[in-house]
């Protein structure tokens, strides 16, 4: 039953870690841990939420032990890919790169809400934080990603179009 959730765990892990191999390692560790501790899950409660809690713990503990992995940033020139006649700035930059710029705590909240479509209460339970913290992390993460996608972030100079 646990293993039926593998595809969703993999999607979340992929977005969280940006690396297919690392993501599957994380999913494997989480599933094995969940399997070992299956007694901890209360029958009748949301199994998916519990699995995400387990994965969150495995992930955060892993981060604590390891040195953070640094990923080289690549400039994405959007000159060629910008759809013509479309004014919206969204989609010009790679959402994956923007996501990687967020602090882990904001990235987790954003992905649980946007990808997993969890309720804010569920996210609070999964991450073990108050719902107010969920909201403020969601807001900061979204606004930061939004500005990044629109090229308004202060961290790096906005990309220039090359004709």
């Amino acid at each position: 039953m646990l293993y039926e959730h593998a595809p969703r765990l993999r999607r979340y892990a992929r977005a969280l870690t940006r690396n297919a191999e690392t993501a599957d390692d994380l999913v494997q560790d989480s599933l094995e841990r969940a399997w070992r501790k299956r007694d901890r899950w209360e029958a009748g409660t949301d199994l998916r939420a519990w699995l995400f809690t387990v994965m969150h713990n495995v992930y955060v503990n892993g981060l604590r032990r390891r040195r953070p992995e640094t990923v080289p940033m690549e400039e994405h020139d959007c000159a060629d890919t910008q759809p013509s006649g479309q004014e919206r700035a969204m989609g010009c930059r790679d959402v994956e790169v923007g996501l990687a710029l967020l602090p882990t705590e904001q990235r987790e909240v954003l992905l649980l809400v946007c990808l997993e479509e969890m309720s804010y209460e569920q996210v609070a339970t999964v991450l073990g934080i108050p719902i107010g913290t969920v909201m403020s992390r969601l807001h900061r993460g979204r606004e930061r990603l939004r500005k990044w996608m629109a090229g308004e972030d202060q961290a790096r100079p906005a990309l220039r179009r090359i004709k």
Binding site: Q28, L31, M90, C114
Partner: peptide, 29 residues
């Protein structure tokens, strides 16, 4: 609108993982 776009972009970017075949090591304990 931007938030909705972000949600859509994230799903477009990662939903493909859902239909990938799951590696053997993630199929059973």
């Amino acid at each position: 609108d931007d938030y909705l776009d972000l949600n859509r972009l994230l799903r477009e970017r990662y939903d493909a993982v859902l239909t990938e075949s799951v590696p053997e090591r993630l199929r059973s304990p």
